[in-house]
């Protein structure tokens, strides 16, 4: 029973965090048809901005999180305007955007290393203290992380389905050409999508820095899990991504609790490979594998 509670609790925490990372990837894929390999680096940018604000400048937690999200959005804005806009809509877009992502990600990672140094850093928790159910330790900090993640996911889905800009994003993801013909400024939409996606990655990074240690490798790991979730949920599908995030989160957590921490990553990958063979377009995929 304790193990079960532990596993479910862990699954919900992981799922919320994966969801935030993966939603950014999925939005970019949906609108821009780009696999953004710089996503992990954007996550790192958020982490380090939050860390610098909280420990060096003594800014309180909540504004620090917001500024981290905003700062990462600015980096995403720069990436879009400086690099991606120049090859947008030209023939070699899929290859080009992939390589631009790798290059920008590499440059961001390395700048972070140059500025902050290689040492692993520690971030204070959002709210200290724990609550115990039997032997299961529930960290208040984790609960806050989950709450923030869920709130931002809900706000985002309301934004996507209700607001003008959200509807524009949906239209562009479904049919870019038709959307443009209907007078939607696609370039602005792309820019908005990039900023939202970057801000989500930054927020996830800032939130997670209170859970894990602040270190350079965490970006790549977070991106890998986000990729798994995005593909699992079906690229470009928001609903599928959120479902997949919690499913993968629970799977990882159950594997960790019942079979040991070392089996989590291989188990998730194996599960995903089998799943892709059986259902190549993901959980809620839209026949994407054929269209790609």
């Amino acid at each position: 029973m304790e193990k079960l509670i532990q596993a479910i609790y862990g699954g919900i925490v992981y799922g919320s965090i994966f969801g935030m990372m993966a939603l950014g990837l999925t939005l970019i894929w949906g609108a821009l048809r780009m696999l953004n390999l710089a996503h992990g680096s954007l996550y790192l940018v958020g982490t380090y901005i939050a860390w610098a604000l909280v420990t060096l400048l003594k800014v309180p937690m909540v504004p620090a999180l917001l500024i981290a999200a905003l700062g990462t959005a600015v980096v995403g804005f720069g990436m879009q305007t400086l690099f991606l806009n120049r090859i947008l809509g030209k023939p070699g877009w899929d290859v080009g955007s992939l390589i631009v992502g790798v290059g920008v990600g590499m440059a961001l990672d390395q700048s972070i290393l140059l500025i902050f140094g290689p040492r692993v850093k520690q971030m204070p928790p959002l709210i200290p203290g724990v609550y115990k159910i039997g032997r299961v330790v529930i960290n208040y900090n984790f609960l806050v992380v989950v709450a923030v993640a869920v709130i931002s996911l809900v706000l985002l889905s309301i934004f996507l389905s209700k607001s003008r800009h959200g509807l524009a994003i949906q239209a562009v993801s479904q049919q870019p050409d038709a959307a443009q013909l209907m007078g939607i400024p696609t370039r602005t939409v792309f820019l908005i999508v990039m900023c939202i996606s970057a801000a989500l990655a930054g927020l996830a990074g800032a939130l997670l820095s209170t859970v894990y240690q602040v270190q350079r490798e965490s970006g790549a790991n977070a991106m890998l899990m986000a990729l798994v979730v995005t593909i699992f949920g079906g690229l470009g599908s928001v609903k599928g991504t959120i479902w997949a995030a919690y499913l993968i989160g629970l799977l990882q957590s159950f594997l960790m609790v019942y079979l040991g921490a070392g089996t989590a990553l291989p188990g998730v990958f194996l599960f995903m490979m089998i799943m892709l063979v059986i259902r190549p377009s993901g959980l809620f995929g839209l026949g994407e594998a054929q269209r790609l």
Binding site: L235, L265, P266, F269, L270, M273, L276
Partner: peptide, 28 residues
């Protein structure tokens, strides 16, 4: 066998995943 029936982003992920799996195997 599973990978090459897919395209684009899916191939990137599966191959990246394989590399991660094998790295995991060689460390643990």
């Amino acid at each position: 066998l599973p990978t090459l029936r897919l395209r684009g982003a899916y191939v990137v992920l599966l191959t990246l995943g394989f590399q991660e799996l094998f790295r995991n195997f060689t460390t643990q």
